[in-house]
Nucleic acid binder design. Sequence first.
DNA 1: AAATTGTTTTTTATCCGTTAAATGCTATGT
DNA 2: ACATAGCATTTAACGGATAAAAAACAATTT
Lengths: 296, 296
Amino acid sequence: MRGETFFKATMNQALEHIAQFQVGDALPSENTLTRSLQASRTTVRKVLDDLDKRGIFTGPPGARLLARHPDPSDYFADTETIATAAQVEKKFLEWMLRADRKPGDFVNGLDLARQFGVPVNAVREYLNRFGRFGLIERRPNSSWIIRGFTCDFALELFEVREIFELRSALAFARQPETAAAFKTLAKLEAEHHDLLGDLDTRFHDFSDLDERFHRLINTTSGNRFIVEFHDVISLIFHYHYQWGKSDERDRNAVAIAEHLDYIAALFSRDPARVEKACRLHLTSARKTLLASISTG
Amino acid sequence: MRGETFFKATMNQALEHIAQFQVGDALPSENTLTRSLQASRTTVRKVLDDLDKRGIFTGPPGARLLARHPDPSDYFADTETIATAAQVEKKFLEWMLRADRKPGDFVNGLDLARQFGVPVNAVREYLNRFGRFGLIERRPNSSWIIRGFTCDFALELFEVREIFELRSALAFARQPETAAAFKTLAKLEAEHHDLLGDLDTRFHDFSDLDERFHRLINTTSGNRFIVEFHDVISLIFHYHYQWGKSDERDRNAVAIAEHLDYIAALFSRDPARVEKACRLHLTSARKTLLASISTG
DNA sequence: AAATTGTTTTTTATCCGTTAAATGCTATGT
DNA sequence: ACATAGCATTTAACGGATAAAAAACAATTT
């Protein structure tokens, strides 16, 4: 049997959606809700049925007039709404990035499943997909073996990152000034300034901004393999940020300054300037990552 | 329950191995066989037990003196020794590369499983891993959707291929003359000449040679992401070769000439020459692929 | 002691039943 | 005609059961 996580997540979404209506209002049609909740009509129907049983509607059957606003007890706990796949990813990466994993160690799927409290299949499937990140290696009919989050790994990762991003950045700069990407870039620039103005309290937000900025650049390459590679980068970085906490604020301050310089270069659309700013930033990002690997 | 494919495959390997011995010889120890057959001792033991039951050994129990040579009926049929995973790959790619697959079509796992005569899970797992090749795209809780073996795909593939291979080729040429890779290259060069001398009958062998040549170059990059990307290339090409059959002989003749030029450039260790030969070959390979997509 | 074999325990791979969710079809109302 | 809702069918995901293969351990031989 399939867990009801998706149903529960959809329910929570629906409750948030409903909260915006006034008591007495009629809710939109099933089809409309299907679109706003991003689920199939079957699931939406099940949610509506359930809501009806909880007495959130009034009027004749099928009228769906709002009887009351949802209250906090209507919501499912967040933990129940996270798909097992996502849980595995999170737990596995936390497990993986713990400093005591050494190259050559092997990964025991059964044991991990027990530790994580998920079915063996979920781990197995995750490992299969995670394989492409290059941190683990499969031996046929046997377990996975850890290649490790080593300096070599970081260097190889950055070698490709630099090739791809430099290429994408130059392509970005070649776009006509009117391209939509420049508008998005302007917004991101503003966000950088905002963050810089309030850095002491909000420096954690940089991780997300960083991801969106680099994604924008890589996306303009229009090459699925380059965009896909960015997923690797972004996953590694996402978990890595949570790991090497020391002087996070200062590191982020430096990175923001570099980003702003890089963004200005992109707006100038001068290839030489773009190349310089891009290289500068990536070099410093690489240093940061390497430093935290050798100390961690 | 797990099919016995691995056992059967190991058995066939063992039979081939045994055929090299003389009647009356004692077979090597279990541990030794474990190494030469690339299986665990448990499996080797099961094979030996089975062989004993077939009366292939003589002498006291455990002596393993060869009583007779294996005959053809001892072998399992090849079809029984191919792991389901490999079957799925083959069948799926054949299905995928048929010309009538259009972008936007969706992939029905259940249906494919029936068509291929394999369990649903096998298809599911394969699709998960195949996802990284960029030819299909996943929609959560729903089927996969085909992005298609289109011109766009080929162009994106070659964009990355050129970046990676050019870089690897230049790194190759920078190696000291004494590097082991140059010896391997010399062997491959000889194989090219052999093939060229007997092209009319053996032109099919080029596919394999091509793969090994490009793999050698990419491997010297020492970058796992570059090497991994070569797997994508090589899979696509492998199946593509079987597809666009027309003027295969002539196309291969051209490619061999380009390879020989490329190899000579690598031996010269002159960066400019390497770059030129590499670009020339890749450009022509791209043209070939594109041509067959638009006609197919 | 080192290698070899016999035995037991773990771990992995595969298959299958079950249910959530999606999709498709039909009737009804607007 | 079109959107909506009810009903039926298909498909995908999950979890467990179990056999195959690997790994660990103990006993034996060379």
